[in-house]
Structure formats: structure tokens, C-alpha cells
Design a protein around this nucleic acid. Sequence first.
DNA 1: TTGAAAGCGCTAACAA
DNA 2: TTGTTAGCGCTTTCAA
Lengths: 335, 335
Amino acid sequence: MKRPTMKDVARAAGVSPMTVSRVVAGEAGVAPETAARVGQAVRKLGYQRNDNARSLRQKNLGTSTIGLVVDDLANPFYALMARSVEDEAHRRGHVVLVGSTNDEPQREREVIAAFTARQVDGLIIVPTIGSHAFLKRQMAGGTQVVCVDRPARGLAVDTVTVDNRAAAMRAVTHLLGHGHTRIAYLGDRFDIWTQAERYAGYLDALAAHGIPEDPALVRHELRSHPQARDALAVLRTLPEPPTALFTSNDLITLGVLDGLDHPAPLALVGFDDLPLGERLTPPLTVVSQDPVALGGTAANLLFSRIAGDRSAPRSVVLLTRFVVRGSGEFRTAAG
Amino acid sequence: MKRPTMKDVARAAGVSPMTVSRVVAGEAGVAPETAARVGQAVRKLGYQRNDNARSLRQKNLGTSTIGLVVDDLANPFYALMARSVEDEAHRRGHVVLVGSTNDEPQREREVIAAFTARQVDGLIIVPTIGSHAFLKRQMAGGTQVVCVDRPARGLAVDTVTVDNRAAAMRAVTHLLGHGHTRIAYLGDRFDIWTQAERYAGYLDALAAHGIPEDPALVRHELRSHPQARDALAVLRTLPEPPTALFTSNDLITLGVLDGLDHPAPLALVGFDDLPLGERLTPPLTVVSQDPVALGGTAANLLFSRIAGDRSAPRSVVLLTRFVVRGSGEFRTAAG
DNA sequence: TTGAAAGCGCTAACAA
DNA sequence: TTGTTAGCGCTTTCAA
């Protein structure tokens, strides 16, 4: 039982395939009765146009398909972003191919290759580390590209990020303002752009207060909940342990929460909000990003490129919110 | 600057397009030096095969694209499911089109139509209410369909769900076992299958204990966090207010948490776990589903159908876990 | 207003 | 081992 083609519909309606094409595409210039006859045949046979064949012929219209490449779709942050992109695409009659990279350049290239092989009109990418110069060829072929969350190395395209460095500086300054001088930094892979930015913000804040960096208080490469938890346990065994923590993403914040209150509570400010963060005791003080705005902005940029905008690449920086709720307002014993 | 085609590569390598096709497809029977020449031309031109054109010609191979249609991709539950489906697809060299329905049959049909127009090999669907008989035509045309989370009305296909009714009964029985007799039910739209099942489980538990249902304690149609919060506020004004709550999904649990401890704490068991549920005070007692297993199972079923399995539709019921953590173990004043 | 011919990029089937 | 021909389902172009 094969699916019917335009030829089948044409035969059933006693017209040529070309006429069916016009009716299905909603073009003017078909006699009303002819259109009605075709419409009936379409319904009778359950005909649906093959849009892949269509876009093969119509090179100017594209495939009405875009690709979204994120770090990890299961991360609520990227899930919200994806939903936002999907909504923008849906509004414009596009569909979305989605793929996760796990921050692995290898998998990113596979995913992007699979998407471009299907002739996507554009890509929204959360770039992994590693050069993205290979995308220049795709772009020369007409594929539009927008980066979100992080810039891509070696590729000048529209990019949407947040004010990572300034926000991190503000968060750490907040802790300094509450009397803390021994503030630990717990971060993910340093080669991830957002992490490097946030670490730089941490250093900015210390420097502004004339506090030298203590390498013993800095932990990078924390890739999981347990690793973050264990890193905190180690920090607590130091001769001069930290009295406050700055955690540079949601996963690390989650891990750190396990050991936060025992034996003694530590002050904590995290980057990224958590769903129930306000209901914890104490409620979490965080730097909050808006993934919906990130995704929506990226999608809007992409669609204006797809619509033909060829102006110079733009860089959009969205602002974070600093949300004071309690966990960052513990004073030190000394303070 | 158009993207190169096989013809361009053929010209550059001094062979016919057919030879290029064979080399790119990795077929045997091409002389090594010829293959090398073609390979060089491919790299020089940055050639990438147009897989849409390919699958137009090769009807037996399909498009290596599947569609995933969920309620709301931004919901962490479905995001985890989506990631799980994506991983299974990636392993098999497929890509995933993803769309959200918002539980609107209209949007669901649009999304599904957009996917089938692009000749997806199969669909994994979280069905909205409303008949899905319209999918029979797609299936006759060769599109495989698997349902997940809920069954589709009017369509006999592989379906993966959890033991909603039994799990809800167990949860409510747990509250009864702690002395509660006035247990409120707070649920989402009753026409959503999972909600009806969970409500049935609630009634089962009451009936098993010989407790008559009190309609004043039952609230359906709670579609958002604020609605759930307000519903609880109303319940607290009853002459005989509930001493315990059963909330039938994560969104409702979140809303109810706002008013749970004031003025007096109520016992609470929720359906669906929340990311930080174990760190609340008191920690949440919940029925926990495994979205990764749901998605993975659905994907496996779908890919075996795509591979040619034509056996009778299967119905797979995965088990939930009941996680006792504190919020459901308050005793009543009376108990 | 309708249709015939050609071709998008690729590959099945055949021939050389 | 390589190439030729035809055609997947559709639309552009042109003619009727």
C-alpha cells in the first residue's frame, strides 16, 4: 500500500498533475470546479504532498526545516530554550530537528552533518569547544547559522549570550559584601566559554577587593553532581576552609547542596536558577538566566537571516537577574 | 555560491556521477585509485550528499528521520524522554524532528502533518485527547507509530505507559495508612488519560478502605501552578478541610507547595518526582516515573517496527517507584 | 485556465 | 569496473 502521489490524484480527478500541484499549493488561476474536483480526489485518496520532493525542485523556498544543536536536551535549561525555538519555528511554518552534543566536538559534527545533509535552512547551535570554521562551507552553500549561549571559535555569525562575566562578578561581590574573604569557586570544564567567563568574573570581584586568589579554593572540571559534592568535601578539610561558595552552573549547585549544611552552613550563590530553588532552606540566591529569551532571540535572528538579511553578524548580550533569597546572605563568624 | 552536486564532483574527478554515488555510499566494486580521485574531489569541493534527494529515489531505505511529538518539550519529564529517544535514534543513524502539542489536538495534527510531509520513517507520540484514527492512513502509507505516556484513542499501535492507576492507589493508601480520611485529590484535565487513571486509583484506595468520596475534596482541571495553589486555598476554607493531599502531576505539586505549610502543614504525596524534591522540608514523598526508560522503550519498539517487525501491537507497562521521604508521613491530629 | 516537457539530485537496473 | 538510461515526486517554464 504505497502512499498516493500527485499523479494518482490527477488520474482520480481527471486532470494533469500540474493542476493538482496548483490546487495543493493554493495557487490562483484554477477554475473553481476543477479545484473542487481535485480537492475531492485529495480527500478520497488521503493525499499528502511530499515536501521533500517539493523542496528538491523549488530551490528558492528551502525545506522549512531548521536544526537545533544543544549541549544536552535533558538539561532543563536547554529544554526551555528548545521549546522557545520550536514555538518560533512553528509560528513560521518550520519544523525543528534537534540534537545533543554532550560537549563532544565529534558528536557535534555528526549531528550537524546529518542536519545539513537534509538541507536545513538554518542551524541554531550551542557550540562545543573546538573550531567551527568547518561551518563556513555550509554557510557558503546557503545554510544560515546562529550561535546561542556561547560564541563559536573561528566563525563570525550572529551570537546570543548573557553577561556571564559581569554577573559572576556581581555574585561574588555580593558574598564579599557580606564579609566573606575565603570564597571558593566550583566550576565545570574551563575550556567551556561560559565557565571561563564566569571564572574571570570571580577573579574580577576578588581583585576589586584586593583579595589575592587562593588556588586551593578553585576547582574546575566538575562534570557531575557527585564530583561537585566531593569537591566541596575536600574544600572543607582545608586548614582554612572557605566560608562561602560560588558555583558556576546548576549541576554543580545541586551537587554542592548535598554537603552545604554539615557540619556548618556555608554561604552559597549559584549561577543558574533551579526549579525549586526558592523553596529550599535557605532559599537559593542565584544568577538567573532566561533560556526562553535566549532561544527566542536566536530564533528571530535565524529567521531574519533565512528571510534574506545579509547584514554584518550581530552579537546580542542578554542580561541576567541576580536573585537574593537567603543562601548567599550568611555572614561569616568573623564578619 | 550553490552547493556542489554529484555532477560537479564527477566532473572534477573525471568520472560519471554514478561512480561518485558508489564511492560516497561506500559501495564495493570501485577501483581504489578511482575512489581516491573521487575522494579528493569530494574534499576539494566540500561536497556533501543531499540525503533528501537520495531518499526520494531509494524508497526502501527511508529518510532516517523520526518524529517525536510530546505535550511540552519544556517540561523536564518530556525533555528527559526526548533526550532518551534522541540517543537511541543517534545510535541508529537517525535524526529526530521534535514538536510540542500543548495538549491541543489542532496543533498535534499540524505537527504530525508537517512531519509526515517530510516522509519520517516513524513517529513517537504522546497523544492528545481526541481520536487518532486519522493516523491509520499514514500507517497504511508505511509510517510506523508508537505511543508513549498515554494510549491513543482509535488506534491500535505499540504503547508504552506506566501503572498510573495502581501507583495512585498505592500513594493514597499510604496516606490512609497514616490515619488520614479526608484526602483531597488535585488533578489536571480529566480528559487526559493519565489523569483519569490516577483519579481512578485515588477512588480505588478510598473504596478499599470503605471511605465514601467527598466531591468537595476533588479538584480537576488544574492547568497551572497558580490554579493549583488557589485550589488548595479554597480547600482549606472548607468546614471540614482535608488533612492530606494527593497531587496528580508535578506542576500541581509545585503549586500546592506554596500553601502547604500555612497555616498548618498538610500531608502530601505527589505523582512525578521533582528535581529538588528530596531537599525540601519536609522532603517530598512521590510516585516516581522513569522518563528515560519510557522514551528508550518507545524508541526501541519504533525502530523494530521500522526494521520490519509486523507483529501484533504490544502494550508495555513500566513500573513506577514509590519514594517515601517525609511529606506523606504526617499523622493527623486525630490519628 | 490547463497541460507537456524538462529537470531538481540522486540511485536502480541494466549494458558495456 | 564503469557508464547510460530512466525515474523517484514534484514544480518551473513555456505553449496551447
